[in-house]
Simulated scan of single mutants.
Amino acid sequence: MTMPIDDLMGSGDNDGSGRDSTTKEKRRRRRNRIILLTVLAMLLGIVVAVAGGGLWLVNRYLGAGNIERIPNAFDIPETDRPSETTKDSLTILLGGLDGGTVVDDDQPGAARTDTIMMVHFPEGRDRGYVVSIPRDTYIDIPGHGPNKINAAYSFGGPALFVQTVEQLTDLRMDHLMLIDWTGFTGLTDAVGGVPMEFSETTILNDGSELPPGRHVLDGEQALEYVRVRKSLPNGDFDRVKRQQNFLRSLMNEVIANGRISSFGRVTDIADAVGDAVRVDENLSALDMARMAWSMRDLRAGDVTFLTVPTRGTGRAGQQSIVNYDDALATELWTALAEDEMNAFLAENAELVTGEQVR
């Protein structure tokens, strides 16, 4: 889809234009919504652009100078990859690394993917699905045999990580994004904190607690919230839900309420994204802008968060693992590929992450 140049560069209104103030306010909100969608979507793996800020802003903040690139992320034999879909869908793989910075973890053995999410948008881009795969899910890693899925990155870097997920899902990944969870503390602070409502006492990773009620988490609190695992009743399953819950709250806050109010806020947020995120080298700034425009009507409520079907935990030798439910997961991947998620989720509502999370 081609973006009208007036919408990409801004409306051009000024105080002397005589335009109705309501119309100008609507245009301002529309531009802000696209910017906000961009920033938040990057954390979800929705690699889009600052379409409302002008082409120069896209190149400044999403070009080679600010967002680090992942080289050779798709260095996979074509015969080993799923077929390209004829539909105008979009699938992005998101990996959160468990150590170091996203810039230095290209090489095999450097890190494992502590967080794995697959983000899928069907044709039309009017809704999205974020599917988390627990890091201890025991599956086959190409060339290495059965192992926890988070070992793929350690064994073979970004390309093997992509290949492993493609083999598991039979879905072709269009793009790859790597995030550093510590880096998104700056993003949380840049948007002024994220409001979250807790129905019960909530334990943070540093041992502190938040009483029931509404809290506005700053960057450090947000990081402690998404890092908890051992003290949660269901361990990594609950941590996955916390990560999803936080991202949803972040989207709800800034997309719905328009937290970007100044150019300074835009640049602060863009800089924070640059510190936390890397994308594959095939994704240009203009591609990101086009993606953003194609998702201009998307709202936080249009994104469904869920976890891949599993059959509980078990053991593989000395390892604690998550047992992958191959039959039900295959139904999920097929439903995503064939745009039949409404029917699938109607029968498997327990996979969806609800509003109340431990």
Rank of each mutant, 00 (worst) to 15 (best):
E340N: 13
M3I: 15
G96T: 05
E25P: 09
M42E: 08
S199A: 13
V50Y: 14
A222H: 06
L97Y: 10
A335S: 14
V191N: 06
I179L: 13
V279L: 07
G16W: 13
L160F: 07
L40T: 12
W333A: 00
G213L: 04
T22G: 15
A329S: 15
H215F: 10
V277Y: 00
F198V: 04
L223S: 07
T79Q: 14
G143A: 10
Y138E: 01
P82G: 00
G317Y: 10
T353V: 13
V103G: 09
A276M: 02
K26G: 11
P195Y: 08
L94S: 04
A111K: 10
L43M: 13
G192I: 08
L168A: 03
F121L: 15
D325V: 10
D275I: 01
A337N: 13
E78F: 01
S83R: 06
Q244R: 05
T79D: 15
L57V: 14
D140M: 09
V47L: 10
H144G: 11
A41N: 14
K230Y: 14
I141F: 05
D136S: 14
D271C: 05
R248G: 06
E25I: 14
P122M: 05
D174V: 02
N66E: 03
G145C: 12
W56M: 12
T86H: 03
L232C: 07
I179F: 06
A256G: 14
E350N: 13
G258P: 04
I70V: 06
T85H: 02
V279H: 01
E78V: 06
R242A: 02
I35A: 11
R311Q: 15
S208I: 09
A256V: 05
M288R: 02
L328N: 15
D7I: 12
Y324S: 08
Q167A: 11
A270Q: 07
A289N: 00
R358V: 13
R27Y: 09
R127P: 02
E197M: 13
L93S: 09
F74I: 04
S132K: 04
D238P: 03
G100H: 06
T137K: 05
V322M: 03
L187N: 00
I46H: 06
R19C: 04
M288T: 00
E338K: 12
R239P: 02
I139A: 05
N205S: 15
R135D: 06
M117T: 04
F344C: 04
A349Y: 05
D180R: 07
G45F: 01
P108T: 07
D339A: 12
E200P: 12
G207K: 12
N59V: 08
M3H: 13
M117A: 09
G54R: 04
V279Q: 02
G100L: 07
E350M: 11
A151P: 02
V102Q: 08
M1H: 10
I179K: 05
G183P: 09
F155M: 04
F155W: 07
A285S: 00
A285P: 00
G63Q: 03
I70N: 01
T23N: 13
R19Q: 11
L8A: 13
L55Q: 09
R311D: 13
G183I: 08
V226L: 09
G52T: 06
L336K: 03
D15V: 12
T137Y: 05
R358P: 15
S89K: 11
V254L: 15
R125F: 15
R172C: 00
Y225T: 06
P309L: 07
V131R: 06
V273A: 07
